[in-house]
Design a protein around this nucleic acid. Structure first.
Lengths: 150, 150
DNA sequence: TTTGTATAGTTGATATATCAACTATATTGG
DNA sequence: CCAATATAGTTGATATATCAACTATACAAA
């Protein structure tokens, strides 16, 4: 493992890759939805797949802060894609449900997601992707700050 | 290449990895500098290595918008780590120079950078890193939105 | 020179990231 | 049941991301 200035490292390239991918996602998303961010779309998708999740659980699933989720959900609600009701079992929580309009948009999103992935990973063999994934996992494990020191 | 829901894809793991790495960087940075963000530190480091860069060029180098660079530089100036003077050859530009205090902080940053990289890439063979880097480059190329359509 | 165009940087608006402080509600131990 | 503690979510503050509009300056062409 060689150490270099930041702009020469693989981790720098990692940053570049994620930014390029986000741009692609937003670009493809703009084609099917008006005024919807990638993060808003992701939250909607997660809620469709796991309807019973609390905001805290959503946050963990998408690696965001619960504060960010609060604000994203607020925007989704403002846009009429989501409704929030008090959770019947736990009054601290909210029961989130996707509106008809939200479901309508979700129907279009499936293709966009597939397109994003296919575009980004075009020309990569399954084995290469597997390897890549494994390396990512190692990096993630390496980066975890020990909670005791954090 | 297999398509899945977002939370199952390698690109999702990519997002996770970069967030974990950023957290590690900020954690290690906090140990040597007070009230300095990773992006501010990166900008300072780039300016040390390439002192003649314009803000636009810095932006390209670190994959940020020139608007973000404007604000980061403003903060670095406020903190007394950087000074801005009008560029003698081009009055649209600024000549940025690192103050004594900035250089003092930079002296501490070298170790932190090395630590970040070594920690994140611990246990990875050079060949694995090389492969990883290559895959990242492919993904970046795949994600570039054709300028004509953007 | 003048006009047109390109470039450097700033600023505003909105979304998200992060941390900390806060409220409301649950839960647990006694 | 009550007090202590934990959890769900909100809010505020600040930094950054992104896009668009804008100013000032440079440059190129006529």
């Amino acid at each position: 493992m060689t150490v270099d200035t930041p702009t020469q490292t693989v981790l720098y390239t990692l940053e570049q890759a994620i930014k390029a991918y986000r741009k692609l996602c937003q670009h493809n998303l703009d084609a099917v939805a008006d005024d919807l961010t990638v993060d808003q779309a992701l939250t909607l998708i997660v809620l469709e797949k796991y309807p019973a999740l609390s905001q805290q659980q959503i946050a963990e699933l998408v690696f965001k802060d619960k504060a960010s989720i609060t604000r994203i959900i607020e925007l989704l609600t403002q846009k009429g894609l989501l409704t929030r009701d008090i959770h019947p079992q736990d009054r601290r929580k909210f029961a989130l449900s996707i509106t008809t309009q939200g479901k309508h948009i979700l129907a279009h999103l499936a293709d966009t997601i597939a397109l994003n992935q296919q575009t980004a990973l075009a020309g990569l063999a399954d084995e290469e992707i597997r390897q890549f994934h494994q390396t990512l996992q190692k990096i993630i494990a390496n980066c975890l700050v020990p909670p005791a020191c954090a």
